[in-house]
Simulated scan of single mutants.
Amino acid sequence: MKNRIIDVQNVKITISKEELDDYICITDIAKVKSNSSRAADVVRNWLRNRGTLEYLSVWEQIYNPAFKVFESEHFKKQAGLLTFTPSVSEWIQKTNAVGLYVKRGKYGGTYAHKDVAFEFASAISPVFKLYLIKEFQRLKEEENNARQIEWNAKRFLSKSNYLIQTDAVKNYILPQRDFKKDSKWIAYAEEADIVNVALFGFTAKAWREKNPELAKKNNVRDFATINELTVISNLETHNAQMIREGKKKEERFEVLKEIAEYQLNILNTAEQIKMIEICDNDLTSSEALCLRDSFPI
């Protein structure tokens, strides 16, 4: 999910995953110092402080090439004046800042990059800041563990079910073949490709030819989604059973293709499954998936 909630000393803090990084709702943090109706005023008063503006300006110059330094100087010159009551939206609009943003509607409020949010928490309560950092780190550890579990699940599904299929090939197909004209590895590769083509629409060889560098350390299934690997698991089990039943490859392929289309559609459209999926945003995987779309069958 894009938004996560952590509980810091009985205060619910919303965290939003944005393109740049994690952003924390500082309007929620402000509730430590004031009630919900006045939380926005706490944020506004914090922005009036020259020290705050100095910190924000330096942060933006480090991480935001489009930041308008000259415009930020106008804010700093007015810091401390009674008539100076800047809004977050005004700061963003005039300086092109990215460290803060304002969100409307559900989970609305002012959000700050985690570096900025921790600085805001220091101004509110140094003790609360420590608890905030602790809970934030706990959240990130849970997310990292979840990603590791997903990766392990992918590899387990891929490897364990491939063993089921190759065992069926060895026991029910290889004995009927002419070993002078064929070999075990060819038979295994052909059976794997029945599943690959049924699901992906291309063979492992086609993928390797398109991705020679990736193929040195990876195979096509390393870049499949958890939904695709779940379907692969089912396809390999079905394929092994059909092999035992003596069905020809052509017949098995048609059956597997229908199963793949149906099951993948169910998984991709089920809202509950979508909510527990963890998206792979790493560039390498994205590039591989884009390349996959152009593979020949």
Rank of each mutant, 00 (worst) to 15 (best):
L264Y: 04
Q137S: 14
I226F: 13
W91K: 02
G246E: 02
E60W: 03
S34H: 13
Y162N: 12
I273H: 11
D115L: 14
A79H: 02
V69E: 09
F120A: 05
N35G: 01
K12C: 04
S87A: 08
L235S: 01
E142K: 15
S233W: 04
L163Y: 14
S57Y: 05
R50I: 09
F84I: 03
I5W: 02
R38Q: 07
Q93K: 15
I232D: 06
T203L: 10
E258K: 15
H74D: 10
E250Y: 11
D222Q: 07
Q176N: 09
G80E: 01
L256Y: 02
T269R: 02
I266M: 12
Q78T: 09
I92K: 02
I186L: 11
N234W: 01
V98S: 08
A224K: 04
D167I: 09
A146D: 03
E277T: 12
S72K: 06
L82P: 15
L20Q: 11
T203I: 03
I124L: 10
N3F: 13
N10M: 07
I194M: 13
Y188F: 09
D280Y: 01
E135N: 01
F156T: 09
G246D: 01
E191H: 15
K94V: 09
F75G: 00
K129L: 06
A146Y: 12
A288Y: 03
I243D: 05
P175T: 08
W46D: 01
S233K: 07
E18C: 06
L139K: 11
A79N: 03
L139R: 06
N35I: 11
W59G: 05
